[in-house]
């Protein structure tokens, strides 16, 4: 009977609405936490990049094997996505960008961070050189260092032309953009670009100015190469750490918005279903009443 079906549908929709509402609340809390974490890390990243850009501007610049441009080779892509879905278009936007890169004819190999990236590489038949899943929200530096070591050891072989990282950059709760950055070879221009990117559009951290000091001649102790030897691994780790934090903040924000939309939609659906239910109920009552009156009239005459 239609009446019963509609009633069941209302109950089911209500339950779904409760689930999405709970997920929205959970994501809201997680979002706040990861946003905070991403923002706290920003000044550090900025000063680290500052050091590097100053170093590159002074004396003999960046003379290090990791700073030299390689003419050809494969493109190692560090792809950062979330582990779980139901977060709007955060992951699909990243995947679309990777599609574009592959379509452009680059020979790509993927180092996947997050389950969705692993699934993508398997689905698209792209060589997977490493995978990291179940990275916690509070990413520990130890974890990141192991990722950075992996990237550095891979790049030591001349097989690769460059290493880049693709992730969702967090602009605001409602706006995240997939961002592609070159990690290696180190390039001062790219670093400057990244520094400019490390600034939220609005909020309490947006006012911090982004000044690159005038390049002074530095006393580099003990040697430029020695400094770069320690600074480059540190920087690669920082870039990955930063990308992870941004990606986490984006994921939770996007999920919160997606769940809010789902909750709103379920409320709408319940409303229209209730109207449908009441109409069907009224129709049944009317039909019954008219049957009874017709029966009474037949008996009376």
């Amino acid at each position: 009977m239609a009446l019963k079906q509609v009633k069941n549908k209302i109950i089911a929709t209500k339950k779904t609405g409760q689930v999405t509402k709970a997920m929205e609340a959970v994501s809201a809390v997680k979002m706040r936490k990861s946003q905070e974490r991403a923002f706290v890390g920003r000044p550090y990243v900025r000063s680290a990049l500052n050091i590097l850009s100053r170093l590159s501007a002074s004396q003999d610049g960046l003379s290090h094997p990791f700073a030299e441009v390689r003419p050809e080779g494969k493109h190692l892509l560090v792809m950062v996505t979330s582990d779980k879905g139901l977060a709007g278009s955060v992951n699909s936007a990243v995947q679309k960008r990777v599609d574009e890169i592959i379509a452009a004819g680059d020979s790509v190999e993927i180092l996947a961070i997050g389950r969705k990236a692993v699934e993508y590489a398997v689905r698209e038949n792209v060589t997977l050189v490493g995978d990291y899943i179940n990275v916690a929200d509070g990413v520990s530096l130890v974890e990141v260092t192991s990722m950075a070591d992996k990237v550095l050891s891979l790049y030591e072989s001349p097989k690769y032309q460059k290493v880049s990282i693709i992730y969702q950059n967090f602009l605001s709760t409602f706006e995240q953009v997939p961002t592609l950055r070159t990690v290696l070879p180190l390039n001062p221009d790219e670093i400057k670009l990244m520094m400019d990117g490390i600034k939220p559009k609005s909020g309490k951290w947006s006012e911090i100015e982004n000044s690159v000091g005038t390049p002074t001649d530095y006393l580099v102790e003990p040697s430029s190469e020695e400094v770069l030897n320690t600074l480059i691994p540190q920087l690669v780790a920082i870039i990955i750490y930063h990308a992870l934090l941004e990606s986490k903040a984006s994921e939770h924000s996007a999920r919160m918005v997606a769940m809010k939309n789902a909750t709103d939609k379920s409320k709408e659906l319940i409303k229209s279903l209730t109207i449908k239910y009441n109409k069907a109920r009224q129709a049944a009552i009317t039909a019954e009443v008219s049957e009874i009156t017709a029966g009474v009239e037949a008996m009376g005459s």
Partner: peptide, 11 residues
Amino acid sequence: ILANHTSIISP
């Protein structure tokens, strides 16, 4: 390192 130390970068 004291105040007004010369510019330096060191690991």
